[in-house]
């Protein structure tokens, strides 16, 4: 779903700059961001606009591999922030980046259950229970690969009921109570606090997602693109990320 929305958004953004409602000239930069970054980057965008008056930041949110494909197919964007280093390297290898991608954050996995834990899930072993509805990300995206690694390390043969395209659609299903449990990022549990509960997974610190960011070659405002990358790596940026449950690089 999120993907469809993202594709639509790209179409809308085919322009770049325009005039705002007040009549003043505005510059818009577009950041392609992995789904798990949605909330943290929303706040970062506001911080960036505060630093650069007249500049608006828009986000094209989706699974990292899809974002990479969109960039390679020529979708207009200024910055790529991905949860999947292989996706970022694919873009860099094609020469579509201004600089070398840099790691800016990491994330660990947690079990998320709906508030009240109706399935009485205690740990990874419960993912093998056939009486529960459990979900994971698809194998093509980092959260799916990490989830499978954790389950394999714990020697659990999971009875997965749905493979979601990105971590946020998985989280939505858990929030709605349609799933009893799912493996998501710690930052996602924090984002949905009150609606989902997190359960720690042993060995989660051994299976971390690595986030990389890079300014894109196709940017119409390379200066602003690099400035946004710089903000993410700065003390302000890192603090915002930490507030949202991300681990430092």
């Amino acid at each position: 779903m999120r993907r469809l929305a993202a594709v639509g958004l790209v179409a809308v953004l085919a322009g770049g700059c325009g005039t705002d409602a007040a009549g003043g000239t505005t510059v818009t930069i577009t950041v392609f961001a992995a789904a798990s970054l949605t909330d943290a980057f929303g706040e970062l965008g506001q911080a960036f606009s505060a630093e650069h008056p007249g500049v608006r930041v828009r986000f094209n949110v989706g699974p990292s591999p899809v974002l990479a494909t969109q960039v390679l197919e020529g979708a207009p964007g200024d910055v790529l922030a991905s949860a999947d280093p292989s996706a970022t390297s694919r873009v860099a290898a094609a020469g579509a980046t201004l600089d070398t991608p840099a790691v800016f954050a990491r994330n660990s996995m947690e079990i998320a259950v709906p508030a009240g834990n109706p399935g009485r899930v205690a740990g990874l072993a419960d993912f093998a229970r056939s009486d529960l509805l459990v979900g994971a990300c698809a194998e093509e995206v980092p959260c799916g690969r990490l989830a499978r690694r954790l389950l394999a390390d714990a020697a659990v043969a999971p009875a997965i009921d749905t493979e979601e395209a990105d971590v946020r659609s998985l989280l939505t299903r858990i929030e709605a109570g349609e799933l009893d449990a799912g493996l998501v990022y710690r930052s996602d549990v924090l984002a949905a606090a009150g609606r989902v509960e997190g359960i720690d997974v042993p060995g989660a610190d051994q299976a971390l997602a690595t986030y990389e960011i890079v300014a894109l070659d196709g940017s119409a405002a390379p200066g602003l693109a690099r400035a946004f990358v710089a903000l993410v790596g700065s003390g302000v940026g890192q603090r915002i990320l930490a507030d949202h449950g991300f681990l430092p690089r």
Partner: peptide, 16 residues
């Protein structure tokens, strides 16, 4: 949902 062999039809497979 989306699970191979159970709910992943052709269009979902394209998507995946």
């Amino acid at each position: 949902g989306n699970l191979q062999g159970r709910t992943r039809t052709l269009p979902l497979a394209v998507f995946a």
